[in-house]
Amino acid sequence: MTALITRPVATMVVVFARALTAVRAIWPESGPPMRPCVYFANHSSHGDFILIWAVLPPWMRSRTRPVAGAEYWLATKLKRFIGLDVFNAVLIERDREKRTGDPIARMAEVLDDGSSLILFPEGTRNETDQPLLPFKSGLFNLATSRPEIDLVPVWIDNLNRVMPKGEIVPIPLICTVTFGEPLRLLPDESREDFLARTTAALLSLSPKSQGAAE
């Protein structure tokens, strides 16, 4: 029954995001992933997962769930509606002291159900001038728990200029979402090596780093 409301709302959000940003997906040569996977992306705006969602082929959208902080998305009725009902987010309690369940087990469960995840390994929005914040351990722990799952780096470009933190009116600017080749945890790879490798894979998709390489 709620699908009657959430479907049109989700479509409206995607249409609005597209009208504002003319967002374009850049896929690697192997094309969009065909099996459940974990998209890990840079995080600079609340709209990040909407943009990833908007460029996914429609049949993949309903099987792709963002991982988000429970504290934020359960705070008000509207956020709860958007986060839980419209985008079907996997909500994680970020506070170690207070949390009841194991977030990694929760994410692994969703993958086992055949859905993909959108994960922001920086853990919070990046408001610095650095291209990326240091990754938290979540991505490594998830990869350890499900080593056979593909990890797809996703660079979201320009959305932080569309709506910087604290602004209420978005400005229209062209955004791109660049997907990289999937990675997996190597046997015996240490946490540090794995996080360094995934960070480098994500950074290499940024237009700025590509411009510097040319």
Binding site: N158, E167, V169, I171
Partner: peptide
């Protein structure tokens, strides 16, 4: 205008002017 502004050097402080 969206294509043009995407390529400019605007900063946070220009947000209201651009809007």
């Amino acid at each position: 205008l969206r294509e043009f502004v995407t390529l400019t050097n605007t900063r946070r402080a220009d947000h209201w002017a651009l809007a």
